[in-house]
């Protein structure tokens, strides 16, 4: 019940979704569409679970007055505020979209913009041509960096960067794509037949 049941369910569902690709059977197609719908519900609730975990984590910090609990108050207040205003004013108008436009979006964008500074600093301190391969990586990086902006185009670097992107880069990415693709397929088969169970957690 605890271990075999989920594996049997997985086998049945996985097989249904697999054979649907090879059969025009209407009943199978209808059940396949049902499974796609159910999956969306499960996925949504899983995401809600993540938010509940976040809430519980910060709530416990506040209860125990752990270090930095004041910041947890900010997080919990922000979370509850958004839910309450969505319920009172609806998610389409009022404070809910306003908070998204003027609080969440600019802060999220800025958080990622910080990375521009760190990437520049790392380029200065750590990007070294210590070996042939490292030099190759560095040269390709510099050519693509300059070739993909107007300044590099003024000196014709776009042709070299396009060549790098269209040939050696394409080959590299394709090699990775095929390699990872083969790995995905073999893992998926192992999941369906029940050999791979680690995703079910400890004791499965």
């Amino acid at each position: 019940m605890k271990k075999t049941g989920p594996v049997i369910l997985g086998f049945l569902v996985g097989t249904l979704m697999l054979i649907q690709f090879f059969t025009p059977n209407e009943w199978i197609e209808a059940r396949y569409n049902n499974v796609l719908d159910w999956k969306q519900v499960v996925f949504g609730i899983t995401l809600i679970l993540g938010v509940i975990s976040l809430f519980v984590y910060h709530w416990k910090k506040i209860e125990k007055r752990s270090e930095g609990w004041g910041y947890s108050v900010v997080t919990v207040a922000g979370l509850l505020f958004m839910i309450v205003v969505a319920l009172i004013f609806s998610p389409e108008r009022g404070p809910y979209p306003w908070m998204f436009d003027h609080v969440q979006a600019p802060m999220q964008a800025t958080m990622f913009a910080l990375l521009a500074f760190y990437v520049a600093s790392a380029s200065y301190r750590a990007f070294r041509a210590r070996s042939f391969h490292a030099a190759l990586l560095l040269i390709a990086g510099v050519v693509v960096m300059l070739g993909r902006v107007p300044l590099g185009e003024l000196i014709g670097l776009q042709h070299v960067s396009s060549w790098i992107l269209d040939y050696p880069n394409l080959a590299a990415k394709r090699g990775i794509l095929i390699g990872v693709g083969l790995g995905m397929v073999s893992t998926a088969i192992k999941i369906i037949v029940g050999i791979e169970r680690t995703y079910l957690g400890k004791g499965a």
Binding site: G44, I45, L47, I48, V51, L54, F55, Y71, S72, V74, T75, V76, A77, G78, L79, L80, F81, M82, I83, A86, P91, Y96, M99, F100, V103, Q104, M107, Q108, M111
Partner: peptide, 15 residues
């Protein structure tokens, strides 16, 4: 921390 809270609140409503 405000970003984390507001984002989580925004997401959970949509989820």
């Amino acid at each position: 921390h405000l970003l984390v809270g507001v984002s989580a609140g925004y997401y959970v409503v949509h989820y």
